[in-house]
Amino acid sequence: MLLLASFTASAQRVEGTRAAARGVYSAEVEVNTQNAAERDTGFARALAQVLAKLSGDANAASQPGMAQALRRAERYVEGFDYRQDEGVSASGAPSFDTMLVVRFDQDKVDSLAAAMGLAIWPQPRPKPVLWLAIDDGSGPRLVGLPKAAAANSTLERAKKRGYRLGLPNGSAAEQAVVGAIWRGDTAAVARASRRYSPPMQLIGKLYRNGGGWKADWVFVDNGKVLSRWSEEGSDARQVMATGADGAADALMKRYAKRSEAGPPGTYRVAFSGLDSADDYVRLSGYLQQLAVVRGITPLSATPQSVEFNLDLVSGLSGLARMVEGGDVLVASGSGDPVDSADMGVDGGVVDPLDSPLPLPGESAPTAYRLR
């Protein structure tokens, strides 16, 4: 019986991890119609959300090369559905919003992130406790589970950043922690949070500030203060949401790991197996659609092969990751780095179009064969 209980608990933990991963690789975006053009735009916005959750970086989709990947976001889609959300317009009449719910292929998205050198925040992710005290003019009060709606903007922003926040139960003893929150006593808050796991606390106080609101935040991980920041604005909900952003930034900085990718630059690559002009067009089109390729410069050509200088976002390793598992190219060899001494030019500047050898600092041609 004990063994069965242990197995069940283990299965629940595994399933919980899988469910969390599925949440990271799915997104919902509002669309105006269900036509193909609107859907493609929705796929791009959804993929941007997934990349932000995967890395914990709200600006992940803005990194070099990502714009090209977003334009072809449908390549990474595993499935999608539509949902109608009913609401009430400003005039009081019923309104209906169409939501595009997109599920992305985890392996394909992971491959894209690795090829682009994106930092990945691994699963399972911690669920810090949000200790938030609000003073609207009648004295500070703790936001506990019974009043969770008051912190909804913070909780929802955390989900968009790829993690979740918990709330204290809000017992009378925990209500007394408000004083420690207000004076910035992180040690006292950490002691009150010992019953919760993990030992991470997002501590915030929100209060009136002139005609608006201000929030002071501290993020603590196992007793260590990782970050302090303040935000202010006219909308209390927006100011509260910044707590989740700051915590995500601190967690990402500490726990996200960047994939091993090569340095950006220009690399010489050879391609064989071209039997016709159509093969050349197919190869060129394929390379132009790869997110890691920023530019292509022809160097030389024979009846069955070509050599290009490829301007790559994440080096040859990034190119290899994007090509691996595809049905267009297969690696057929690689060369070794060379320097100017190997070129016999005494360190002079050589036009790559005039020389069959790589420029200093480049890699020798990496060879691929067209399938």
Rank of each mutant, 00 (worst) to 15 (best):
A180P: 05
E38P: 03
G170P: 12
V292Y: 01
Y163S: 13
Y76A: 09
L100G: 08
R125G: 07
Q175G: 15
G170I: 10
Q289M: 13
E174D: 07
L167D: 00
S111N: 12
R103F: 02
V109W: 00
G246L: 12
R75I: 05
V338Y: 00
M252H: 09
R164M: 10
D351L: 11
A241K: 10
S91D: 15
A36T: 14
A44M: 07
D235Y: 05
P303F: 01
G211E: 11
R72F: 05
T154V: 15
A73D: 06
P365D: 04
E362W: 04
R282W: 00
A44C: 08
G170M: 07
D57G: 09
A36S: 14
G246W: 06
N59E: 12
E15Q: 15
M99P: 02
R161T: 06
L357H: 02
Q63R: 15
A250H: 08
V328N: 04
P128A: 02
V330K: 11
P128F: 00
G23D: 14
T186C: 05
S89W: 01
A9H: 02
P64D: 03
A67T: 10
R294H: 08
V269T: 14
L287N: 06
A187K: 12
A90P: 02
D279W: 04
W229E: 15
D354V: 06
R369V: 15
A151S: 09
A113R: 09
R268V: 13
A27G: 06
G211H: 01
P264T: 10
